[in-house]
Design a binder for these strands. Structure first.
Length: 282
DNA sequence: CATAGATCCTGTATGC
DNA sequence: TGCATACAGGATCTAT
């Protein structure tokens, strides 16, 4: 369940370890690891230099110097990008391996549930002087992006007739939010996820966005949220924001604000946890 | 067209 | 003990 804070932790680690390095070889060990990609990932990457590591929402990409294309990665639910010495034994769910001409640590894509994927895609203008991969141009900016347009978000939110949690999870409206940070932000804002978007005025939307940002910044400072060994940084280490959660995974525990027991319901084929007393439906 | 729901996947946990 | 079922959920596809 890597969401924005977890993906940003991975981005920072990757930026430090792979920027400037030249890819020597690529080994794809599972067909599902490469998505929406024409031709051979290997042919597109060998000999290319990684210019930097960028992120929008939950997507990572590495522009290849002087080519106008980028290696894009999405971790899905259980994807990991790990830096490992070549002497380290292959992980059980190793899906792809990238080695470099300097013979330093290799980059490994490990993914138990195979919801994640890699691809090479052209870069296009992002409308603000930067670039982003073509295949994710439908993904909205995330709330920590300085160019995130709060007014445009509010307008689009009001144009929707749906529940606020569904809107928060829609990456084309605002990116980077998944089930954990949706539940946490809604708890902090005192809003029930089933509240209709049309009932939220501008100040409620601003308040909700401020909680989204705050919870993500706090999580980032703690290395992200890890419930099991599936989310780790590039060095295989877990974050510890799970100790700070107020709603997600807290079913049956007293609400830390009012003491009412936290409840869980099914929503969009996943769980929503919320305080039935202090999270309002309007 | 817009929104709601189903689907993919596999390891772990729980129940009978 | 062992088998069956529930659960985790991001993105995309299909149905209404």
């Amino acid at each position: 369940m890597p969401e924005l804070p977890e993906v940003e932790v991975v981005r920072r680690g990757l930026d430090r370890w792979v920027t400037g390095r030249i890819i020597a070889d690529v080994e794809v060990l599972h067909a599902r690891a490469v998505r929406r990609h024409e031709g051979s990932l290997k042919d597109d990457l060998i000999g290319q230099q990684i210019a930097c590591v960028s992120r929008r929402g939950k997507y990572l990409w590495m522009p290849l110097s002087g080519t106008g294309v980028a290696l894009v990665a999405h971790l899905g639910m259980s994807g990991q990008l790990l830096m490992q010495p070549s002497s380290t034994p292959d992980e059980t769910h190793l899906r792809a391996r990238f080695t470099f001409t300097d013979r330093g640590p290799e980059l490994r894509f490990v993914d138990q549930r195979t919801f994640g994927g890699l691809m090479v895609t052209p870069l296009v203008a992002d409308g603000a002087g930067g670039q982003l991969p073509e295949i994710i141009s439908h993904i909205a900016r995330d709330p920590l992006d300085p160019a995130f347009d709060e007014e445009a978000f509010e307008t689009r939110l009001h144009a929707r007739d749906t529940e606020i949690k569904r809107a928060l999870l829609d990456q084309s409206l605002v990116s980077g939010i998944g089930n954990i940070y949706a539940d946490e932000s809604l708890w902090r804002a005192g809003l029930h996820g089933r509240c209709r978007t049309g009932l939220l005025d501008g100040s409620r939307v601003q308040d909700l966005l401020s909680h989204v940002r705050a919870v993500m910044i706090e999580a980032l400072a703690q290395g992200g949220t890890s419930f099991d060994s599936l989310y780790v940084n590039v060095n295989g280490e877990s974050g510890y924001f799970d100790r700070s959660l107020d709603a997600y995974g807290q079913e049956g525990e007293p609400c830390s604000r009012c003491g009412t027991l936290i409840e869980r319901e099914r929503f969009m084929n996943r769980s929503s946890t919320f305080c039935p007393r202090c999270q309002l439906n309007s």
